[in-house]
Simulated scan of single mutants.
Amino acid sequence: MNRRKIPVIDSDTLAIRRASRIVGTRVAFACAAVVAVVIVAVFVYILSEISPGELFEPVPDTENLQVSAMKLLRAAAVLGVALIVLAGVLSWLVTRRAVQPLGDVLHIQRAFIADASHELRTPLAVLDARLQLLQRTLPVGDPSSSVVAELRSDAKDLINIVNDLLESAEVGGAAVHDTAVVNLVAAVDAAVQSMALIAVDKHISIELDAPQLASVRVPDSSITRCVVALLDNAVRFAPRGSIIAVGVAVTKKTVAVTVRDRGPGIHGIDPARIFDRFAHSVPPDADGHESRTGFGIGLSLVREIAVRYGGAVHVVDSTAAGTAICLTVPRAKLA
């Protein structure tokens, strides 16, 4: 089987590089603007002091050095370009050094999340086991059975959150490994079938439009995990009785999975920020912080996985008619 190694780049590193480029570019443009203003001022001053006929005439000085105004202007232009290039290089170097502490903080944060998640998994598993034992020992018809069942459900929710935290922390620091070619459509269909059982409670149907085959070098479990997170977000905001559309599109180089709901859209937050950990938005009819809607870490985990395998995830559009989120991964080249 044809295999190749996938380079590991976590989303934190990608964000730091992007911030470095943005800040460096802005500083370089600011420096270039200052240099350009100075050069223009020199041009204007020289041209104001001589007549057009004297522009190309050499001007003798007391030391027998002859120089024309045109040569002086040309020298000033070359000097200005050199200063602009130098400003750009220095801005890039200084910016990279300046944002490095931010990268260290993000890595420390990731390590803390991983350590805390590891510490929480065991007591939560013990708690769930004890609740399960209590549930089994209760006689049929016991009035406390419903309360114990709710407690078990809450414990499972906590376990899922901790597992998501741990997976989010470990994805970025995972080692490079070989990845086999898988059919993305099968993994997406598995996610749709799983979430359809949850969506039916809100009378929401999930429709899949996909080709028969879409080969990628991403583990099928990771694909399913990503699509489940996207569908979970869509089901949470979609109105009752609506349809969630899942489409798979294959191009020459990429495979894209788009999940579109009929919800109210994203409000109170930049759509690109919904992939940040624990991002919150404000519904259009809310006027206080109590009504904030959390995205949790599911979408953050989608971005982590996508970036790890050379892909990306972004909001295609978000209006009052609904929101569409697209997950893109490289298409596998078959031998």
Score class of each variant (00 low, 15 high):
35 V>W: 02
235 V>H: 05
294 G>Q: 12
254 T>M: 06
297 I>E: 00
106 L>N: 05
302 V>R: 02
256 A>R: 02
62 T>N: 03
18 R>I: 07
29 F>E: 12
49 E>C: 03
175 A>M: 12
118 H>M: 09
180 A>M: 11
242 S>R: 01
271 P>M: 02
141 G>V: 10
184 L>F: 12
330 P>V: 07
6 I>K: 06
151 L>S: 14
186 A>N: 11
252 K>L: 13
126 V>W: 00
142 D>I: 07
114 A>P: 09
244 I>V: 15
66 Q>M: 13
16 I>S: 00
101 P>D: 04
245 A>C: 02
32 A>I: 09
227 V>A: 02
232 D>L: 04
234 A>S: 12
89 V>T: 10
135 Q>H: 14
321 A>W: 09
244 I>Y: 08
275 F>M: 01
12 D>S: 12
139 P>A: 00
204 I>W: 01
235 V>Y: 00
332 A>H: 04
86 L>A: 11
93 L>K: 14
168 S>D: 04
200 V>Y: 03
183 N>W: 06
70 M>H: 00
1 M>Y: 12
163 N>C: 11
92 W>V: 12
249 A>C: 03
222 S>Y: 03
185 V>H: 06
82 A>N: 13
13 T>H: 06
30 A>N: 08
173 G>H: 10
295 F>C: 08
191 A>V: 13
307 V>F: 01
241 G>D: 08
20 S>M: 10
206 I>V: 15
76 A>R: 06
13 T>I: 02
205 S>F: 03
297 I>F: 00
155 A>L: 09
322 G>N: 11
258 T>N: 04
306 A>G: 05
10 D>N: 15
289 H>F: 10
216 V>S: 00
265 G>N: 10
269 I>C: 05
211 P>Y: 01
283 P>K: 05
186 A>F: 03
267 H>V: 09
185 V>K: 07
